[in-house]
Simulated assay, not measured.
Amino acid sequence: MSISSQSASEQAYAAIRDSILSGERAPGAMLGEVGLAAELGVSRTPVRAALVRLQDEGWITVYPKRGALVRGLSEKDARELADTRFVLESAAVQRATPQCRTELADRLASELDLQRSALGADDLSRFIELTLAFHRSFVEVGGNQVMLELSDRLADRQRFLLFALGDSLLARCQTIIDEHEALVARLRDEETEGFVEALRSHVTGTVDSGLRGLHR
């Protein structure tokens, strides 16, 4: 494959993937090579390579001569995602030093203002990215690079789940911010057990809302 075709394949992959994660191409939608190639302004070859990659990642199922079906996340996928995120985030916070937890609480407190600003502007995309960064910080504070890499690999699935909420997420944003604020308070007060329980409730509530969005 030439350098130019590699670049076209990467661009096609990124564009199709982003449209799936943002909900633009919803679960159940059929994607055709010809249509995608015309839309993206590339040949069918890089589109085909991009679809193979997306199938390997579990986002689509390719049916020869028919197209590709957008899969998204099943309920089982979403539940397992929530369980794994909870394990990573709670374990990382518990292994962090008290000083690191306090410093993290101070930093995250300022990020809550950014979340409020995004909510005030009805900027769903910005709010989602801020939420993902907020939760990544819980894993990062533990200082375990392997755990952080695992968390980063889950980020796209969480992004998809949040976008699936659509307008429902905007209605829940204030609740999410309130729950984030409670998590920060428990970090600052060194209520580690309380943090873990609050995190469990928060993650479960978010995925439950996400599933209702997926099935609406």
Rank of each mutant, 00 (worst) to 15 (best):
P64K: 02
R53S: 07
R85M: 13
K76Y: 12
A78R: 00
E10L: 03
D189N: 10
Q94T: 13
R186H: 07
V184R: 08
R25W: 13
R153W: 08
R116P: 00
V52H: 03
R107H: 07
L183Y: 02
V42T: 05
L169R: 09
S168T: 04
D123N: 07
H202L: 06
E181K: 12
V52G: 03
R85T: 01
R25H: 15
A164M: 11
V52R: 03
R200M: 09
E191K: 14
L104S: 06
Q94L: 14
A8Y: 04
D152T: 08
E103T: 04
E57H: 10
R200Y: 15
V34R: 14
A105L: 08
A15W: 11
G23E: 05
L88T: 08
D122Q: 13
D18M: 13
A133M: 02
L81C: 13
V87P: 06
R159W: 03
M30W: 15
L154C: 05
A121Y: 10
S9D: 04
G72Q: 05
G120M: 02
D18C: 12
E181G: 08
G23C: 04
V93L: 06
L183P: 04
R95C: 05
V70S: 10
T192K: 08
V70D: 11
A121T: 06
S22H: 10
G143W: 12
Y13V: 01
G142L: 05
T61C: 12
H215W: 14
I20W: 00
T45Y: 12
L112Y: 04
V196M: 08
R107D: 02
G142A: 07
R25M: 14
L54M: 13
A109E: 10
D122I: 06
V62G: 03
M30K: 12
V42M: 04
R101Q: 05
S19H: 15
R126G: 06
F86L: 14
F86P: 04
Q55D: 08
S4E: 07
R44F: 01
L132Y: 00
A82V: 11
L148G: 10
A15V: 10
M147G: 08
R212I: 11
V87Q: 10
Q115W: 07
D189Y: 03
L108Y: 14
R212P: 04
L165K: 03
H215D: 13
L183V: 05
G23Q: 10
S9I: 00
V70A: 12
A38H: 15
L214A: 09
V146H: 12
H202W: 06
V207R: 00
S19G: 13
L112M: 09
E181P: 11
L40T: 03
R48P: 00
L148T: 10
R17F: 07
L54I: 07
F195S: 08
H215I: 10
Q6C: 11
V87I: 15
E179I: 06
S5L: 12
A38R: 15
